[in-house]
Design a binder for these strands. Structure first.
Lengths: 206, 206
DNA sequence: TGCAAGCAAGTAAGTGCTTACTCTCCGGCG
DNA sequence: CGCCGGAGAGTAAGCACTTACTTGCTTGCA
């Protein structure tokens, strides 16, 4: 075996990656010091040279997830509808492809298995996402790009749910991307202001 | 070892209920023979008088969940849109209230922690749900009640996602019901044919 | 009275984590 | 240059504990 010695920092990255992989493929219940050690080709004791505890390792996993999620927010300079579009696409395809994380992160089971502050941090991510979507929808409505006869707060769960389903989709990346784009197209078509104004409309901007 | 010993049916029901409760409130990682025994006031050994193994107990839990899910399908005699409405409401509120199951059942972590045939059975439930929603949407479109300028297959994930988000909502039952109804209203409003026909339409039925 | 239903105590295997030790690299110094 | 000593990444073994499950023995009820 290539028993290269590595620096602690390298190993920390390697270990969080491996932990994420185990969690994604076998569930968090399958993550143990021994299974993790086997995955990276170390003895279980060596793990504690690089992390003070399994809990500390899970903290690192959470941090990694936070970073991935944060990277899916498009620049806030984009017009709201396009911002929303880019966001949904990024979350549902890029993230799902890059790492198979989201499906697990969003699950309650994962939160319950995490140390408290870890789950709090992830809950904050979800909250942030909700706020982002809400802002996009509100701006889109005010700009007249999205239909404004329905309250924005009720549209947010529809958008979030669609993202979740797309991210959770078990199909292969190729196919998923195509499906995701089609669904995203329909979602935006639903939300857009109809060409001909419906029976009631809050206000109209040029 | 022998198959199931002759066991008390009452205890089996009691045990699956308790297991479901633990899973729903504390996560599947918190389900152990000890915690389960404590919940029903038995010794941990007594559990095995009624179930051959924890796996067998989980099978029973899956069966219960299947039954609950099956009970949320409204009668197929209803017109498609109302059928869809009733279904979404049942799945996202009634079920969520009756038992706090859905949130966990739908999670990947739960599936991963399950014996293979259990997860296959739940996957089948999801598949059935998808087919149901697709049928409702298709019929609704053909009847002219739902907008037909968007392919039905792309609308299904949007409906399913919305149901998931509503079922997963952590808010208290009272508040959740109100929120769910509002979101459901918006969802149907989005899907309905606009009063004035949009630019393109697939076909029109009387 | 027979026996299902229960308990207390036990099993092997698995958990996170620690200990005692080895090996390898690398920088300072004669 | 050579070589020596310390730092730190690695190991095997084992701790105290929990896991699912088993085993003898005892009850309470039909």
């Amino acid at each position: 075996m290539g028993e290269l010695r590595r620096t602690s920092l390298d190993r920390q990255v390697e270990l969080t990656d491996a932990a994420l992989h185990i969690i994604a493929t076998k569930g968090i219940a399958a993550l143990s010091t021994r299974s993790l050690a086997a995955q990276v080709g170390l003895s279980s004791g060596a793990i504690f040279r690089h992390f003070a505890s399994l809990e500390a390792l899970l903290d690192a996993v959470v941090a990694r997830v936070e970073a991935v999620l944060a990277s899916t927010y498009p620049p806030s300079t984009l017009p709201p509808v396009e911002r929303l579009e880019r966001f949904v696409e990024a979350r549902s395809t890029a993230v799902g492809k890059q790492l198979g994380i989201l499906r697990l992160v969003l699950s309650e089971q994962f939160l319950l298995a995490l140390p408290q502050r870890g789950s709090a941090r992830l809950a904050a991510c979800v909250q942030q996402t909700r706020a982002f979507v809400l802002a996009c929808v509100r701006e889109g409505q005010d700009a007249g790009a999205l239909r404004s006869d329905l309250p924005a707060e009720t549209l947010v769960p529809i958008v979030m749910g669609t993202v979740q389903v797309l991210a959770l989709s078990p199909s292969k990346p190729r196919q998923r991307d195509a499906e995701a784009r089609a669904v995203l197209g329909s979602l935006l078509a639903l939300l857009r202001s109809p060409a001909v104004a419906p029976t009631s409309s809050r206000k109209s901007s040029p």
